[in-house]
Simulated assay, not measured.
Amino acid sequence: MTAQRSDARRNYQRILTVAEAEVAAHGADASLEQIARTAGVGSATVRRHFPTRQALLEAVFRERIENLCERARRLSETDDSRAALLDWLHGLVEYAVSARGLADALTFEPPTDQPASHSCGSALEEAGTPLLENAIRDGAVRPGVTFHDLLTLSVGIALATEHHSEPAARAERLFHLAVEGISPVQGATET
């Protein structure tokens, strides 16, 4: 029984390692069959560990999402709530642009009143909401702006720029344009 468990752990790690490379190369549409072949396991083994494409994508991005969440916690302790929120959102957009497939993974999670437990989107929401609430409280962001508005905006920027010749530069420009849209006064300073 212990040998089976260690085989299962090795298979899981091998599948995840291959999936990370495939998602980096092909985005969220990476072939599950190709992942299985490259990992040296059957398709059923991939599906046993990752019953859905979303579950696989969540696992691929988990560590990096945790880093973004930790960054949000650190930034929530700063005095300038607007700068903290924009710094974190900028990091989210940069990561979504550079990590092929992340924006697609986040689009699978429409906003609901009941957050999905342990998902990338719910982890980001839990970490980023205090930053948004602080900025709204301080008058740095318009009341009524929701975390899902900001996540949708970030994902939209990443998806809209992924096929540009310079996606990071285009995303940067769109991010700065969007910031003026969430500022409480016209002509707010740039981030």
Rank of each mutant, 00 (worst) to 15 (best):
Q4N: 15
Q4I: 15
R5W: 10
S6C: 13
D7V: 13
A8Q: 13
R10N: 08
Q13K: 03
R14E: 01
L16V: 02
L16D: 03
T17C: 00
V18S: 00
V18E: 01
A19N: 05
A19G: 05
E20L: 08
E20W: 05
E22L: 10
E22S: 11
E22T: 04
H26S: 13
G27P: 07
D29R: 10
D29S: 05
S31N: 02
I35N: 11
A36H: 10
A39F: 08
G42Y: 01
G42E: 00
S43L: 07
V46D: 02
H49W: 05
F50L: 07
R53E: 00
R53D: 01
A55H: 10
L56A: 04
L57K: 07
A59C: 12
V60P: 10
R62Y: 13
E63A: 15
I65C: 15
E66V: 05
N67C: 03
N67K: 07
N67Q: 13
R71I: 10
R71K: 15
A72K: 05
R73L: 11
R73I: 08
E77W: 13
D79C: 09
D80Q: 12
D80H: 10
S81Q: 09
A84F: 09
L85C: 08
L86I: 06
L86D: 07
L92N: 04
E94F: 01
E94N: 06
Y95G: 05
V97A: 00
S98V: 02
R100F: 01
L102W: 10
A103I: 01
F108D: 02
F108A: 07
P110I: 04
D113R: 14
Q114T: 14
A116R: 12
C120S: 14
G121C: 14
E125N: 14
E126P: 14
T129I: 12
P130D: 05
P130F: 08
P130W: 08
L132K: 03
N134A: 09
A135C: 03
I136A: 03
R137V: 04
D138R: 06
A140E: 01
A140D: 01
G144S: 10
V145A: 06
T146N: 12
T146Q: 11
D149C: 15
L150K: 08
L153Y: 15
G156Y: 11
I157P: 01
I157M: 11
A158N: 02
A158W: 00
L159E: 04
H164E: 06
S165N: 14
S165R: 12
E166N: 14
A168S: 06
A168Y: 00
E172L: 07
F175A: 01
L177Q: 13
L177V: 12
A178V: 05
A178G: 11
V179S: 00
E180I: 04
G181E: 12
S183D: 15
G187K: 08
T189R: 15
E190T: 07
